[in-house]
Design a protein around this nucleic acid. Structure first.
Lengths: 213, 213, 213, 213
DNA sequence: CTATAACCGAGACGGTACGTCAGGTCTTCGC
DNA sequence: GCGAAGACCTGACGTACCGTCTCGGTTATAG
């Protein structure tokens, strides 16, 4: 019980890390990240704004992207909503509404910056995957697992692919900007993804309740 | 940039634009783009490698991304294959195989770099959309228009969304690297996209030919 | 005749070196050098004060000491007075008075800084020797050559050693600060140096004119 | 610094100064000082090499030069040889031989570094004068006092100036590097200095023993 | 036998400067 | 007048030390 604590402390001599500095860096970075693209941040500016030495940043983070990701996770992130309405279509529609709201926010801008950054920094790609993307997907995956239990989708459905079917189109749309992300569009995407993965039985049930498509 | 140059102004005095320089810049950039991420290219290096003054580059292109995009379009791009098998599912499967091959090539790396770059450079995003993405989508759109004619999908289906359903998951997978892009996965994505947009009639016909999913 | 000139110019394309920048650097450095020891100058401060990029300084000079030496030679240096009174003793006494004046000035401070710098930078030591010390000694050497002609000193006297006998004590005094450099002291040093190198004949002649030492 | 410590205050509470740490600092510094110029030492490196906290160094010494001087005095210094042959010329020649040996050694390098350091640090200049230069000159001064007693030099000769006449040329030669310090040269310097300060009587006696110069 | 005090190592901190790199602009010459 | 060459100012890079500041711990004397 107490063990973890006492193992944690005392492990090193010397002046301990300044929580104030860390917080200042995170805060400054978060603020800057809302103002401009990640690419246009500089370590110097973060240090300046945080009132912190550059070395202090380099000591605790590997790159400005790592600082930014940390700031993002600590200040810009809200809980994922994982609806459980008993209907996959409904779940997906609701979920998509909520992630769309995220994607369109400042946080969503940051998210896309990170995805962009990952294209030229393999180490960061892994970090981003580990600290943000994977945990998020793990939370959301239950939506499909529940659908499998309810037999709405086939037992051998790969939730990973299901998720890509749902989120991929959205993200691509946002990144390329070739089309808008209106309510209408997101719902269409949700429906297509649903029809794409649901079983025939569910299709039939669904068709009963609505007019033929 | 680069467009509609020659017709209007053949009267101007002075030395004409050197086609050799332009070609050298394009070639050097293409080569560099195969070696490393766009972000890590520099105008100076391109100029050095091309044996060209920096100013010459700045004169004809707005940014290194613009040079790179130009180089990409002129040297790394092959015709899109737009299959016409008479079956949307088959068309989509084939198409996806061919774009997957593209995405996994050096050219695909470059494509993702451009998408990344667009996240921090709105002007470039528009350029990329105009000179690459839109033309491509225009070519591919006929696949869905043909499917509408064949009544495989509803008349009011938006091909834009259909395309996002098909390509979005792939691109997202590649960019985030959370999963592989095996033949198996791409075919699954194609199928899901197809089931997502095809009409009930087509679903039924398809089920006849295969065992129940 | 004209050859040297035409070889000099035209040798390179590109924007020529900015004389304004060079002058600004020299001026700024000279000013700073009067305010504080060479060691406490920084390239950054010079650049800042001169309104010049650091790179411009690094391009044309190897080190801050080199800049400082250049500034010193171009702005703080006056002609050496090489007296020719027909008497070595008189020449030496006058010369020493004038160099003492130099040593005690701001320029003399700088001179000692350079000598100090040379102790930890062999490359600079050679530079200093070449551009300042050797030319100066070459100018002054004639004093002893004339004395040799007049047979005041032996024909095989080494002027280098004679000069060290004259200037060495002064410089050491100034650097260590163990004693003052009053008129009295410098004249004593001059006399000792003179007696040390003059021939017996001259000693005798000199003794006739003055009371026995 | 470092002087007159123990006698006055044996009463104070608290942990006493660690002699081990002091010795380690001195040893590490001495070693480093043999490897590179004083300017290129850093407190951090000394602390690292000595296995000591930086603060411990700052507590007991004012600057790295002070540490170095301390290390120099405690480990690199040998007794000065003050010959007493009964002849000033002989004394000077021998002395100069021995100091030349010193100047050319690692210790001599350090000595010049200190003299150099003194040009940009007035406080250190005074310290160096007090703990090294003055004591040394005090020891050597008797050479001239004995010569005065023997009436080899005038009663009012200033030994300080005499010393400068002897050592100054050597030191300047070494610092500027404009000439070598061969046996031949040092003996010439010694002779010149001797002739410069000896009385006529001595000159005459000396001439009897040698051929006319 | 504590309590107090000074010391010590370790090492994090806010800074300043380093020397390098590239950006985007400018100026000159040769074609 | 175009284009190469290349110098210019700017500003960020990542590193090295500076001198200061906590920490946890150690070793003395004083009570």
């Amino acid at each position: 019980m107490e063990l973890a604590v006492s193992l944690q402390r005392n492990k090193s001599a010397g002046r301990p890390r300044s929580t104030a500095s860390e917080a200042a860096v995170i805060a400054a970075t978060a603020e800057l990240l809302k103002e401009r693209p990640l690419r246009d941040l500089t370590i110097e500016e973060i240090a300046r704004k945080a009132g912190v030495g550059k070395q202090t940043i380099y000591k605790w983070w590997n790159s400005k992207s790592a600082v930014a990701l940390d700031a993002f996770c600590k200040t810009m992130l809200k809980e994922v909503e994982v609806p459980d309405t008993g209907s996959l279509l409904e779940d997906m529609a609701r979920q998509l509404r909520s992630v769309t709201h995220f994607y369109k926010s400042k946080a969503g801008d940051a998210f896309r910056q990170f995805l962009a950054e990952a294209q030229s920094d393999e180490e960061f790609r892994r970090l981003f995957l580990k600290v943000f993307l994977k945990p998020r997907r793990d939370e959301v995956r239950v939506m499909w697992e529940r659908a499998i239990e309810r037999k709405e989708i086939a037992a051998d459905t790969d939730p990973e692919i299901a998720m890509d079917n749902l989120y991929g189109p959205l993200i691509f749309r946002l990144m390329s900007g070739h089309g808008s992300l209106s309510e209408n569009v997101t719902q269409q995407i949700a429906q297509n993804a649903f029809w794409g993965i649901a079983t025939e039985k569910v299709h039939a049930a669904y068709r009963k309740r609505t007019s033929e498509r």
